Simulated scan of single mutants.
Amino acid sequence: MKETGPHGEEQGVAGWHGAERRRPVGRSPGQVRGAGTRAVPGGSSAGEPGAPERVRAEPLLSVRTTLVLLTAAVIGVVAGVLAFLAGGPVAGAVLADLTAAGSSVPVLNGLVR
C-alpha cells in the first residue's frame, strides 16, 4: 500500500524500524497464510463493496479434544481427592490424580466419537 508524501513522492507503509512491509497479492491486511484463519462468508468489515472480509481465527482445540481432556481432569481430581481422604499423603494423592487422569485419556478417546 503506497501513500503519497507532502511533496507527491510515494512512501511505503512503515513497519518495524521504518522498514517497508510487503503484503502478499490478493490477501487482505489481516489475513496471513498459515495463521489458522478463515474468512467468514459474505462478511465485510465496513459493509462496502470491495472492503476486505472479516477473518475468524480457528479454535485451538476441537470440541472433542476439550471434552476428553476435561473429563480426564475431572476423573483425576476425583481420584486424587479420594486418595487424600483415605488417609494417604498429599504426594500419594497427587500421584493417584496424575495416574488416573493420564490413563483415562486413551479410554475416553476411544469412547467419544
Rank of each mutant, 00 (worst) to 15 (best):
D97H: 00
G30K: 14
G110W: 08
L82V: 02
K2F: 04
E10N: 07
L82H: 14
E58H: 13
P89A: 11
L67Y: 10
L82Y: 00
F84I: 05
P29I: 02
V40K: 13
S104P: 06
S28H: 09
A73G: 13
G30M: 10
T71V: 10
T37S: 04
H7L: 12
G15T: 00
E48Y: 05
V77F: 14
P6W: 06
A46Q: 11
E48L: 14
G47Y: 06
G102Y: 10
T66V: 13
Q31I: 00
A35S: 15
T37N: 01
S62I: 11
V74W: 15
P49L: 00
S62T: 15
G43W: 14
V55D: 02
R54T: 05
V63G: 15
T37E: 04
G43R: 13
V25A: 10
N109L: 14
D97C: 13
R113E: 09
P89I: 10
T99M: 07
L67K: 04
A86K: 09
A39P: 07
G87C: 06
W16N: 12
K2V: 07
A73T: 01
E10M: 08
V107C: 03
G110M: 02
G76D: 09
L111H: 01
Q11V: 15
K2Q: 04
V32L: 05
P6K: 11
A46E: 05
L60W: 12
R38T: 08
G15R: 03
T66W: 12
V90D: 01
G5Q: 06
G43L: 09
L61K: 03
G102V: 14
G18K: 09
A39D: 04
I75C: 09
P29G: 14
V68Y: 09
G88L: 11
A100R: 03
G36Y: 00
Q31R: 12
P29F: 08
N109K: 09
R23Q: 14
P29E: 13
T4S: 12
L85G: 07
R64G: 01
A96H: 07
V25Y: 13
E48T: 05
W16Q: 09
A79S: 05
A86H: 05
V112M: 11
T65I: 07
P41E: 15
L111P: 02
G12R: 01
P49W: 02
T65L: 08
L82N: 03
R54S: 10
T65V: 11
V105M: 00
A14G: 12
A35E: 15
E3I: 10
L98D: 00
A100Y: 07
G102R: 11
E53M: 04
A14L: 15
G92L: 06
P24D: 15
R54K: 14
V40E: 13
S28L: 02
G42K: 03
I75F: 13
V94Q: 00
V81D: 08
R54F: 13
V78I: 14
R54N: 06
A91R: 06
G18Y: 08
T71D: 08
